[in-house]
């Protein structure tokens, strides 16, 4: 079944024709060519595909594109203000060497931003580690990811994002 779908991705109106079974992540990557959002496990475990849909973080490998009809979607490509000015969370990941291979990073950054906002910019290490339950990293042992998120929380607050 082919369906027309329209949504806003990173502030831009987009539309396309998809099969009912097309996943949101497939629509982003294969229809829109936005390959920043990754597919790691395809079984909702790893979190590499996390994007923001109407203000809530979701695993885009476990949502149909048609379910995002009319929604506002933000992906990793929508975070940085410009090529020179990263989002404070991206900057904190760079500063703290919070990635090695980088495959999990888009999902980590998206989940981390959601986490900081849900906790009103106030996080401790135990909370960060618990909240990262749905994001798997096979390189870093999480240590620097946790450091980056803790550093980004006050930076996001002062930047007003």
């Amino acid at each position: 079944m082919t369906i027309s779908v329209a949504m806003t991705v990173n502030g831009k109106a987009v539309s396309g024709k998809v099969e009912a079974r097309t996943l949101l992540v497939q629509f982003l990557r294969e229809h829109l060519g936005m390959t920043g959002t990754h597919v790691g496990c395809d079984t909702s475990q790893c979190g590499a595909c996390v994007v923001d849909v109407d203000g809530k973080s979701v695993k885009s490998c476990t949502m149909l594109a048609v379910q995002a009809e009319g929604a506002k979607v933000i992906t990793i490509e929508g975070l940085a203000e410009s090529a020179d000015k990263l989002h404070p969370m991206q900057e904190a990941f760079r500063e703290n060497h919070a990635l090695q291979c980088g495959f999990c990073t888009p999902g980590m950054v998206m989940s981390a931003i959601d986490m900081v906002k849900r906790h009103n910019y106030q996080l401790d290490e135990a909370t960060v580690r618990r909240e990262l339950e749905g994001n798997l990293c096979r390189c870093t042992g999480y240590h620097n990811i946790v450091k980056a998120i803790l550093a980004a929380a006050p930076a996001m607050k002062s930047a007003g994002v």
Partner: peptide, 9 residues
């Protein structure tokens, strides 16, 4: 239940 993203859906 699950993780934050799963709890959102």
């Amino acid at each position: 239940i699950g993780d934050p993203a799963v709890r959102n859906r």
